[in-house]
Simulated scan of single mutants.
Amino acid sequence: MGDSPPRELISLADDEGNSVSVNVLARTPRWTSGLDAEIVVKTPFVSGRIDLALSVARLESWANALDRLDAGEDAAWMEMSSGPTISVQLTGERGCPEVVVEDESGSMVTVRVPLVPPEDWIADHRQRLRQVLDHWIPMLSG
């Protein structure tokens, strides 16, 4: 097709300069059914990134997290695995949604990013997930 592979699985940002994204980088050479990815946090105060390995199961668990968020519940993604965890709290400590990125097993750093996502962000992220799955799953399965 000539199209570039979908890169942004998660892209949450506001007009205050706060953002959290998960970018799919490539198929990992270390593991035939995995993807190299990164979590990127940017705020006017702090910025950082951490490597992440994505599997089909992790991508499917993001779909489940989106379902919980759509039902009005807070959700944590990758909470029970080693590596970083991303949590979305619909009503955070500052009265607006917050994305919490925790790297307990590595750097032991936690970053809370308050941001108000656009109205249609859950539908947008379902579409992002579908694009990532449609592009990468055939390559990971074969």
Score class of each variant (00 low, 15 high):
M1C: 15
M1I: 09
G2N: 10
D3L: 12
S4A: 15
E8R: 13
L9D: 02
D15W: 07
E16D: 09
G17S: 05
N18P: 02
S19P: 04
V22H: 00
V22M: 00
R27I: 06
R27A: 14
T28H: 07
P29N: 11
P29K: 15
S33W: 08
L35S: 10
I39H: 11
I39Y: 01
F45R: 15
I50H: 01
D51Q: 03
L52M: 05
L52W: 06
L52G: 01
S55Y: 10
V56H: 14
V56T: 10
L59Y: 02
L59W: 03
N64M: 14
L69T: 00
L69K: 05
D70Y: 13
A71P: 00
A75Y: 11
M80R: 12
S82Y: 15
S82G: 11
G83A: 11
S87T: 06
L90C: 09
E93N: 12
G95D: 06
E98A: 05
V99A: 11
V99N: 02
V100T: 14
V101S: 13
D103Y: 05
S105P: 00
V109R: 15
W121M: 08
H125N: 12
R126H: 13
R126N: 14
Q127W: 13
R128L: 01
L129Y: 03
L129I: 07
Q131D: 14
V132P: 00
L133Y: 00
L133T: 09
S141R: 15
S141V: 02
S141Q: 12
